[in-house]
Design a protein around this nucleic acid. Sequence first.
DNA 1: GATGAATGAGGCTTCATTCAT
DNA 2: GATGAATGAAGCCTCATTCAT
Lengths: 214, 214, 214, 214
Amino acid sequence: MPKETFLNLGEEKQENIMRAAISKFSSLGYEKSNIGDISKTAGVAKGSMYQYFENKKELFLYSIQWCIDLLMKKYNKFIISPDKNINIFDYLYDSSKEIIVQMREEREAVIFIQEVFLGRYKNIMDESMDYILKATDQYVLNFINQGKKNGYIREDIDDKLLCLYVTGVSFKFKEYIINRAKSMGQEIIDEPFDEYEEEIKSMIELMKNGMGRS
Amino acid sequence: MPKETFLNLGEEKQENIMRAAISKFSSLGYEKSNIGDISKTAGVAKGSMYQYFENKKELFLYSIQWCIDLLMKKYNKFIISPDKNINIFDYLYDSSKEIIVQMREEREAVIFIQEVFLGRYKNIMDESMDYILKATDQYVLNFINQGKKNGYIREDIDDKLLCLYVTGVSFKFKEYIINRAKSMGQEIIDEPFDEYEEEIKSMIELMKNGMGRS
Amino acid sequence: MPKETFLNLGEEKQENIMRAAISKFSSLGYEKSNIGDISKTAGVAKGSMYQYFENKKELFLYSIQWCIDLLMKKYNKFIISPDKNINIFDYLYDSSKEIIVQMREEREAVIFIQEVFLGRYKNIMDESMDYILKATDQYVLNFINQGKKNGYIREDIDDKLLCLYVTGVSFKFKEYIINRAKSMGQEIIDEPFDEYEEEIKSMIELMKNGMGRS
Amino acid sequence: MPKETFLNLGEEKQENIMRAAISKFSSLGYEKSNIGDISKTAGVAKGSMYQYFENKKELFLYSIQWCIDLLMKKYNKFIISPDKNINIFDYLYDSSKEIIVQMREEREAVIFIQEVFLGRYKNIMDESMDYILKATDQYVLNFINQGKKNGYIREDIDDKLLCLYVTGVSFKFKEYIINRAKSMGQEIIDEPFDEYEEEIKSMIELMKNGMGRS
DNA sequence: GATGAATGAGGCTTCATTCAT
DNA sequence: GATGAATGAAGCCTCATTCAT
């Protein structure tokens, strides 16, 4: 979606630009971020940005794309298609842990992409990108379907609602993690896994067995 | 938080202004809403807005306040402090139904306030308003505490996590309802309750008993 | 076509703005004129221009309008509808002289409007203004028609061609006058009529009797 | 006037460039035409344009030159110096017909050059090119001079005015032809001569014998 | 206190020209 | 010499805020 010119750039330069964009969009939001700033942060002339992207919106949209690609490339698991033999609870556990690991190395990218999925930029993402949001649902729906077939998910509740339920819990949980990360700034690096481990397990427990006491 | 001048205004004028603000903020977001538009919609001079509010941000912040007050005044239950004799599941059921009822009469206000709680405007809401977001949590925490005491909520999981869990599910669910409402525009008026009834029950069921199949 | 705001301005301010616009457009052409410059020349803030006009193009289009109105108001004869008893040759003589007089007092306006008619800004004038250019033709056609009826114009030539002929000669002649005026700058004020008088007569003679020697 | 580099180019490449330039200038005007576009249309790198020409203006100025040369080379008659034995009326007839013929083969070039002469680009053409505009006048003046000597042009009217008269009529007429051509797009190819023949004759008739009825 | 005009900073975008390969 | 990326000045326009009535 960016222009040829951008793709012909050296890897490093591309990265500088995209990271600058992501950083700004993530910290200021779409409207308050401005091309001049981003270009300066990236160490590029303002005008150059328009040789790379048609306009601000395209830059934003591509930031999402680039971010997803980056994370996929770096952490294949992120997108590993649902293994027939893995159930959604295990998957959630793995992917949650994964994200925490990723956050150490790719703080901004991960936070940005999570916020994208959390719907912060819904207004800007037109149809051309909407599918991304829907993809997650589809993804979860697959799991639910299989879960029902394989007998570890109850069958008396509508798929769509189960999907809402799962995404609701896990999104909120991710949000909580993100906010914690944000408020801690860079020091996250030193945070131990274990602290999260228990929490993750508990959330999944809740999804699995509910919070009621029989 | 608005200036004296605003509070001296007639009820109706105040309402016009706040509703105009809410409508714009809700449909365009904070940055893209503009004072000129809002004032015009409210039938007030642009300059007057600055006699009522220090600046755009204050107007926004007060919009939240006003909205909450409106809903509280109109639907006391909305904030009725947790009754010792009601458990969180019943409360969730009641409040969910309540919101749907409210949406008929106060569509824009309800949607706006929900999106505030969903975090859409986190950037703008500084500390001075943050407490609102936290209030919800506190509210849910109360329930959880009592639930544990009264024996209908399991005790092996941390309060904070249970809180995330509950808000996660119910927020996502509310978001789903809101989006449905938005996409349907005004016709919501004719929509029957029953359609939602089942869904609400199912979501609560999930919270209570989880999605796993023992 | 300008916004209310502009029309509510004091006469003098309106005039300052329009004269600044005309001056710039006339000397630099449409593209090279810029709003910042015009506003500065007019002694107004740049932003104000956008309270008066939707955009640059509207300012330009209204400049034409305003200019025509100005000249019409000041020199009623300019648009006096063709008198039944006046023939085209007399009319051309009168109007030519008239323009020269006008140029003394309204140099820039007259030059601007003439260039509009000469087609310099054809590109910018969309349909909404095109009629102005066509109006002139219609005007001349009327004369020709009447001339034929009244017997002082030959009937063996097509109206449209006669019209081209008349406008061709008189436009070129006006252009010549304008260029002379431009190159002389402001000193034109002291130039005597008589110098033009002969020329005007000669041009009309040529139209009437041609340049051939029988 | 272009740099050495340009002149060392192959004929065809030179032609591509100039035709691209002419096409853009003609359709968009000077300001709105841009080097990037022109170079792309010509199949040349943008940077190369600056190895051929000092700047945009020089490219433009040379476009005029090149265009004139092209037409002169292709249609010698176009500029053939006034034959002692031909009078201006015959010349006008011939040259008018000629232009219509040329328009079939060199539409863009002819239209461009005519508009140059019609003064559309006066602002851009500085002194260095002004002579071209004056050349036409000189050319016509020659004819007039001879015409007077040979007795087929009346002597009681100033040369300069006769010149204005002739150019006025013929320019306007050419403009009319051009506009017709433009509005018809490419289909002009199939248009028959005859349609114009009568019109040309009439215009010349008017110049010769005037429009008055004795 | 109300009004709406005035202001100017700031953002997006274009494009002539220069630079590095 | 050719290429096309890089640059930054400059223009249009928006809009929060201030000012004058």
